[in-house]
Simulated assay, not measured.
Amino acid sequence: MASNGEKNKKVTSKSPSFSLRSPSLNALRLQRIFDLFDHNGDGFITLEELSQALSRLGLNANLSDLKSTVESYIQPGNTGLNFEDFSSLHKTLDDCFFAGDDDLSSPAAADESDLAEAFKVFDENGDGFICARELQAVLKKLGLPEGGEMERVERMIISVDRNKDGRVDFFEFKNMMRTVKQIS
Results as ranks from 00 to 15, higher is better:
89 L>Q: 09
89 L>F: 10
89 L>A: 08
90 H>D: 08
90 H>A: 11
91 K>N: 14
91 K>P: 00
92 T>E: 11
93 L>R: 00
94 D>Y: 02
94 D>W: 00
96 C>H: 12
97 F>G: 03
97 F>A: 11
98 F>G: 01
98 F>M: 13
99 A>G: 02
99 A>I: 03
100 G>I: 09
101 D>G: 05
101 D>P: 07
101 D>F: 12
102 D>S: 13
102 D>G: 02
102 D>E: 14
103 D>F: 07
104 L>K: 02
104 L>M: 13
105 S>A: 14
106 S>D: 01
106 S>M: 04
108 A>Q: 14
108 A>I: 09
109 A>E: 15
109 A>L: 08
110 A>N: 01
110 A>T: 00
110 A>C: 03
110 A>V: 02
111 D>T: 01
112 E>G: 02
113 S>P: 01
114 D>T: 06
114 D>S: 07
116 A>Q: 15
116 A>E: 15
117 E>N: 13
117 E>I: 00
118 A>S: 08
118 A>T: 08
119 F>K: 12
120 K>R: 13
121 V>R: 05
121 V>T: 06
122 F>T: 00
124 E>D: 13
125 N>S: 07
125 N>M: 04
125 N>A: 01
126 G>N: 06
126 G>H: 07
127 D>W: 14
127 D>Q: 09
128 G>C: 06
128 G>W: 00
130 I>G: 02
130 I>E: 05
130 I>N: 05
131 C>F: 00
131 C>S: 15
131 C>H: 04
131 C>M: 09
132 A>C: 05
132 A>N: 05
133 R>D: 15
133 R>C: 01
134 E>P: 11
134 E>C: 14
134 E>V: 13
135 L>N: 11
136 Q>F: 07
136 Q>V: 12
138 V>Q: 10
139 L>R: 07
141 K>T: 15
141 K>W: 01
142 L>T: 04
142 L>K: 02
142 L>Y: 04
143 G>K: 10
143 G>Y: 14
